[in-house]
Design a protein around this nucleic acid. Structure first.
Lengths: 148, 148
DNA sequence: CCGCCTGTTGAGACTGTGTCTCATCTGTGC
DNA sequence: GCACAGATGAGACACAGTCTCAACAGGCGG
């Protein structure tokens, strides 16, 4: 539901407005990742009058409070995924768009190794993984017929 | 110099044209990462008449042959770095913009771990690191005075 | 319960990035 | 040196994201 997003907004001292409630609901409905443009389209489809600027502003706020994470698709598009407010990464399914959060998984030691190799002080990192989720793997790909 | 880029183009069967030579030289001059817009500006600054479209097209080609890699800055900008044609990653210095290539550094085992945890088949990944390079670390930051 | 103050909103102008078209040009193989 | 396919440039175009500003509406105090 959209509750957690509203709660997070409230806790961070933001007003709980109608447009934000609507957007929170739209985001909660998203299966996988989504772009700002998709949210705008979704809002219009449901006849919810929300300005484009508001969508961008709200996404910015949500990212700031960690209710949403911004990811860069291989195509260069900027997308978002709703998520728990904690540092982590995502695997994105390139077939259905769904995402899964992943934790450290040994990344920390990679960072240390990189720092050692290069002499850099590494402050920030971004890891994005793309692949195919278990569900999509289960439904046989059948490269013929459709994809062919 | 710009030679390696031209060689790579040649080997991949592309024509060695004047605009490409000019762009290869401009890219070779770039210290750290650069954007398409910066290349356009650099070309204009040197009174080299290269169309904007050509810059974008050339960058696309160079990325395809691996002579250049596209990275996503934390700001959301799309930038490029000239590099060796092999899979690897970069650490970007957020102070001077310079980049260093890094190899595996244990990432491979992270990928395996993620696949195990999530059940995804991981096909593609992108890792971007941001920090401060040894040279910039050496010149004291002095957060007062300027940054204050 | 009402009204005020401030944060928020919507419309639309605006900036900048990247794409596309199409006529023209230029490498390259012959 | 010629011809042809690939490459180019100019500019129109599509689209993402930002900004401004007047109007609005949450949330608090009274």
């Amino acid at each position: 539901m959209s509750a957690p997003i509203m709660t997070a907004l409230d806790r961070a001292g933001y007003r709980l407005t109608e447009p934000r409630r609507a957007l929170a609901a739209l985001i909660a409905d998203q299966e996988g990742h989504f772009t700002a443009a998709e949210l705008v389209a979704a809002a219009r489809a449901r006849r919810i009058g929300i300005g484009r600027a508001t969508v961008f502003r709200t996404l910015e706020v949500l990212e700031a409070i960690g209710a949403v994470e911004r990811i860069d698709l291989p195509t260069g598009e900027h997308a978002y995924v709703g998520c728990e407010p904690a540092h982590h990464h995502h695997v994105v399914c390139s077939r259905c768009g769904r995402t899964s959060e992943i934790d450290d998984a040994g990344l920390r030691s990679v960072m240390r190794e990189v720092a050692r190799q290069t002499g850099y002080r590494v402050d920030e990192h971004r890891l994005e993984l793309f692949g195919v989720c278990p569900a999509c793997l289960a439904t046989r790909p059948r490269p013929r017929s459709i994809t062919a």
